[in-house]
Amino acid sequence: MDYAFNWRVVWQNWDFLISGITLTLGVTAASLSCAIVIGLAVGLMRLSKKGLLRRLAMAYVEIFRNTPALVQLIWVYYCLPVLVGINLDATSACIVALSTNGAAYVAEIFRAGIQGVPPGQVEAARSIGMSYGETMRKIILPQATRKMIPPFVNEAVSLLKYSSLVSVLGVSDLTYQAQVLSTTTFRPIEIFTFIGVVYFLVCWMMSSAAQVLERRLAVSDR
Protein backbone atom coordinates (compact mmCIF):
# COMPACT_ATOMS: atom_id res chain seq x y z
CA MET A 1 0.00 0.00 0.00
CA ASP A 2 1.69 3.13 -1.11
CA TYR A 3 -1.09 5.66 -0.59
CA ALA A 4 0.28 8.97 0.64
CA PHE A 5 -2.11 10.37 3.23
CA ASN A 6 -2.64 14.07 3.22
CA TRP A 7 -4.62 15.05 6.29
CA ARG A 8 -4.25 18.73 5.54
CA VAL A 9 -7.39 18.49 3.47
CA VAL A 10 -9.34 18.02 6.68
CA TRP A 11 -7.89 21.08 8.42
CA GLN A 12 -8.16 23.21 5.33
CA ASN A 13 -11.87 22.47 5.12
CA TRP A 14 -12.51 22.48 8.83
CA ASP A 15 -15.33 25.03 8.85
CA PHE A 16 -17.05 23.28 5.98
CA LEU A 17 -16.96 19.97 7.84
CA ILE A 18 -18.03 21.57 11.11
CA SER A 19 -21.10 22.99 9.41
CA GLY A 20 -21.91 19.42 8.37
CA ILE A 21 -21.46 18.14 11.92
CA THR A 22 -23.70 20.91 13.24
CA LEU A 23 -26.42 20.03 10.79
CA THR A 24 -26.14 16.31 11.53
CA LEU A 25 -26.44 16.93 15.26
CA GLY A 26 -29.27 19.41 14.74
CA VAL A 27 -31.30 17.06 12.55
CA THR A 28 -30.68 14.19 14.97
CA ALA A 29 -31.66 16.22 18.02
CA ALA A 30 -34.81 17.55 16.39
CA SER A 31 -35.81 14.11 15.12
CA LEU A 32 -35.11 12.49 18.46
CA SER A 33 -37.23 15.03 20.33
CA CYS A 34 -40.16 14.56 17.97
CA ALA A 35 -39.66 10.80 18.04
CA ILE A 36 -39.98 10.83 21.84
CA VAL A 37 -43.24 12.77 21.76
CA ILE A 38 -44.79 10.73 18.94
CA GLY A 39 -43.32 7.51 20.34
CA LEU A 40 -44.82 8.12 23.79
CA ALA A 41 -48.23 8.73 22.23
CA VAL A 42 -47.99 5.64 20.02
CA GLY A 43 -46.65 3.55 22.91
CA LEU A 44 -49.55 4.60 25.15
CA MET A 45 -52.01 3.86 22.34
CA ARG A 46 -50.44 0.47 22.01
CA LEU A 47 -51.35 -0.17 25.68
CA SER A 48 -54.81 1.34 25.42
CA LYS A 49 -57.90 -0.63 26.40
CA LYS A 50 -59.53 0.53 23.18
CA GLY A 51 -58.98 -2.00 20.40
CA LEU A 52 -59.01 0.57 17.62
CA LEU A 53 -56.25 2.70 19.14
CA ARG A 54 -54.21 -0.39 19.86
CA ARG A 55 -54.48 -1.66 16.30
CA LEU A 56 -53.65 1.74 14.82
CA ALA A 57 -50.53 1.94 16.96
CA MET A 58 -49.56 -1.59 16.05
CA ALA A 59 -49.96 -0.85 12.34
CA TYR A 60 -47.82 2.25 12.72
CA VAL A 61 -45.03 0.36 14.40
CA GLU A 62 -45.11 -2.48 11.89
CA ILE A 63 -45.10 -0.22 8.84
CA PHE A 64 -42.10 1.76 10.00
CA ARG A 65 -40.16 -1.19 11.24
CA ASN A 66 -40.64 -3.20 8.08
CA THR A 67 -39.70 -0.67 5.42
CA PRO A 68 -36.21 0.70 4.79
CA ALA A 69 -35.49 4.11 6.31
CA LEU A 70 -34.14 5.33 2.97
CA VAL A 71 -37.41 4.48 1.24
CA GLN A 72 -39.35 6.30 3.99
CA LEU A 73 -37.14 9.32 3.56
CA ILE A 74 -37.58 9.50 -0.19
CA TRP A 75 -41.29 8.82 0.16
CA VAL A 76 -41.76 11.75 2.53
CA TYR A 77 -39.80 14.06 0.28
CA TYR A 78 -41.16 13.12 -3.13
CA CYS A 79 -44.48 11.35 -2.57
CA LEU A 80 -46.01 13.24 0.34
CA PRO A 81 -46.14 16.56 -1.56
CA VAL A 82 -47.94 14.92 -4.48
CA LEU A 83 -50.37 12.93 -2.33
CA VAL A 84 -51.14 15.45 0.41
CA GLY A 85 -49.98 18.68 -1.12
CA ILE A 86 -47.60 19.46 1.72
CA ASN A 87 -44.36 20.81 0.36
CA LEU A 88 -41.43 20.34 2.68
CA ASP A 89 -37.94 21.58 2.17
CA ALA A 90 -35.35 18.82 2.23
CA THR A 91 -34.26 19.40 5.84
CA SER A 92 -37.83 19.38 7.18
CA ALA A 93 -38.63 16.28 5.16
CA CYS A 94 -35.63 14.59 6.75
CA ILE A 95 -36.73 15.53 10.23
CA VAL A 96 -40.26 14.30 9.54
CA ALA A 97 -39.01 11.02 8.12
CA LEU A 98 -36.48 10.37 10.87
CA SER A 99 -38.92 11.33 13.65
CA THR A 100 -41.71 9.12 12.42
CA ASN A 101 -39.28 6.27 11.88
CA GLY A 102 -37.66 6.75 15.28
CA ALA A 103 -41.08 7.03 16.92
CA ALA A 104 -41.91 3.45 15.90
CA TYR A 105 -38.91 2.19 17.82
CA VAL A 106 -39.35 4.62 20.71
CA ALA A 107 -42.99 3.48 21.01
CA GLU A 108 -41.83 -0.08 21.52
CA ILE A 109 -39.30 1.06 24.12
CA PHE A 110 -42.01 2.94 26.03
CA ARG A 111 -44.40 0.01 25.76
CA ALA A 112 -41.88 -2.48 27.06
CA GLY A 113 -40.76 -0.09 29.80
CA ILE A 114 -44.29 0.62 30.98
CA GLN A 115 -45.28 -3.02 30.87
CA GLY A 116 -42.20 -3.83 32.91
CA VAL A 117 -43.57 -1.84 35.88
CA PRO A 118 -45.54 -4.21 38.13
CA PRO A 119 -49.33 -3.68 37.82
CA GLY A 120 -49.58 -3.31 41.60
CA GLN A 121 -47.91 0.10 41.27
CA VAL A 122 -50.77 1.34 39.09
CA GLU A 123 -53.36 -0.14 41.42
CA ALA A 124 -51.83 1.52 44.44
CA ALA A 125 -51.69 4.89 42.66
CA ARG A 126 -55.24 4.71 41.33
CA SER A 127 -56.56 3.54 44.69
CA ILE A 128 -55.38 6.73 46.41
CA GLY A 129 -57.18 8.73 43.75
CA MET A 130 -54.38 9.60 41.34
CA SER A 131 -55.56 10.07 37.76
CA TYR A 132 -54.28 8.09 34.82
CA GLY A 133 -52.03 10.99 33.82
CA GLU A 134 -50.65 11.51 37.33
CA THR A 135 -50.04 7.80 37.66
CA MET A 136 -48.16 7.77 34.37
CA ARG A 137 -46.07 10.85 35.15
CA LYS A 138 -45.29 10.25 38.81
CA ILE A 139 -45.29 6.49 39.21
CA ILE A 140 -44.97 4.57 35.96
CA LEU A 141 -42.70 6.64 33.75
CA PRO A 142 -40.09 7.38 36.45
CA GLN A 143 -39.77 3.66 37.08
CA ALA A 144 -39.97 2.69 33.43
CA THR A 145 -37.34 5.27 32.43
CA ARG A 146 -34.57 3.46 34.21
CA LYS A 147 -35.16 0.34 32.21
CA MET A 148 -35.60 2.37 29.07
CA ILE A 149 -32.25 4.16 29.12
CA PRO A 150 -30.15 1.51 27.37
CA PRO A 151 -32.57 0.79 24.49
CA PHE A 152 -33.30 4.48 24.22
CA VAL A 153 -29.64 5.39 23.76
CA ASN A 154 -29.38 2.63 21.18
CA GLU A 155 -32.20 4.31 19.33
CA ALA A 156 -30.55 7.74 19.56
CA VAL A 157 -27.36 6.26 18.17
CA SER A 158 -29.17 4.62 15.29
CA LEU A 159 -31.00 7.84 14.52
CA LEU A 160 -27.71 9.67 14.36
CA LYS A 161 -26.37 7.07 11.98
CA TYR A 162 -29.56 7.06 9.91
CA SER A 163 -29.28 10.82 9.63
CA SER A 164 -26.43 10.27 7.16
CA LEU A 165 -29.11 9.11 4.70
CA VAL A 166 -30.35 12.67 4.39
CA SER A 167 -27.39 13.40 2.17
CA VAL A 168 -29.29 11.75 -0.69
CA LEU A 169 -31.76 14.63 -0.58
CA GLY A 170 -28.95 17.14 -0.80
CA VAL A 171 -29.17 18.20 2.84
CA SER A 172 -25.71 19.39 3.77
CA ASP A 173 -25.08 17.11 6.73
CA LEU A 174 -21.69 15.68 7.60
CA THR A 175 -21.89 12.89 5.04
CA TYR A 176 -23.04 15.22 2.28
CA GLN A 177 -20.25 17.71 2.99
CA ALA A 178 -17.79 14.83 2.86
CA GLN A 179 -19.09 13.78 -0.54
CA VAL A 180 -18.78 17.30 -1.84
CA LEU A 181 -15.24 17.65 -0.51
CA SER A 182 -14.23 14.30 -1.95
CA THR A 183 -15.21 15.29 -5.44
CA THR A 184 -13.54 18.68 -5.23
CA THR A 185 -10.33 17.63 -3.47
CA PHE A 186 -10.00 14.01 -4.67
CA ARG A 187 -9.21 12.98 -1.09
CA PRO A 188 -12.13 10.64 -0.18
CA ILE A 189 -9.94 8.36 1.94
CA GLU A 190 -8.89 11.05 4.40
CA ILE A 191 -12.26 12.70 4.43
CA PHE A 192 -14.38 9.59 4.94
CA THR A 193 -11.95 8.23 7.52
CA PHE A 194 -12.24 11.51 9.37
CA ILE A 195 -16.05 11.61 9.36
CA GLY A 196 -16.13 7.94 10.37
CA VAL A 197 -14.11 8.85 13.42
CA VAL A 198 -16.40 11.80 14.15
CA TYR A 199 -19.54 9.60 13.94
CA PHE A 200 -17.85 7.04 16.16
CA LEU A 201 -16.84 9.56 18.80
CA VAL A 202 -20.27 11.14 19.05
CA CYS A 203 -22.07 7.78 19.27
CA TRP A 204 -19.56 6.41 21.72
CA MET A 205 -19.88 9.44 23.98
CA MET A 206 -23.66 9.06 24.00
CA SER A 207 -23.39 5.41 25.02
CA SER A 208 -20.89 6.20 27.76
CA ALA A 209 -23.02 9.03 29.15
CA ALA A 210 -25.96 6.64 29.26
CA GLN A 211 -23.95 4.12 31.24
CA VAL A 212 -23.03 6.74 33.82
CA LEU A 213 -26.64 7.90 34.07
CA GLU A 214 -27.88 4.35 34.44
CA ARG A 215 -25.45 3.69 37.27
CA ARG A 216 -26.49 6.91 39.04
CA LEU A 217 -30.17 5.99 38.87
CA ALA A 218 -29.46 2.50 40.13
CA VAL A 219 -27.84 4.01 43.20
CA SER A 220 -31.01 5.89 44.17
CA ASP A 221 -32.76 2.53 44.48
CA ARG A 222 -30.66 1.75 47.51
Binding site: G120, E123, S127, I139, Q143, R146, S220
Partner: peptide, 12 residues
Protein backbone atom coordinates in the same frame (compact mmCIF):
# COMPACT_ATOMS: atom_id res chain seq x y z
CA UNK B 1 -57.87 3.52 51.64
CA UNK B 2 -56.75 0.19 50.22
CA UNK B 3 -54.05 -2.09 51.52
CA UNK B 4 -52.83 -4.88 49.26
CA UNK B 5 -51.43 -8.31 49.92
CA UNK B 6 -48.26 -7.36 48.03
CA UNK B 7 -47.85 -3.89 49.69
CA UNK B 8 -47.29 -2.15 46.34
CA UNK B 9 -45.17 0.65 47.75
CA UNK B 10 -43.84 2.94 45.02
CA UNK B 11 -40.41 1.47 44.43
CA UNK B 12 -38.74 4.68 43.19
Amino acid sequence: GMVFQSFNLFAH
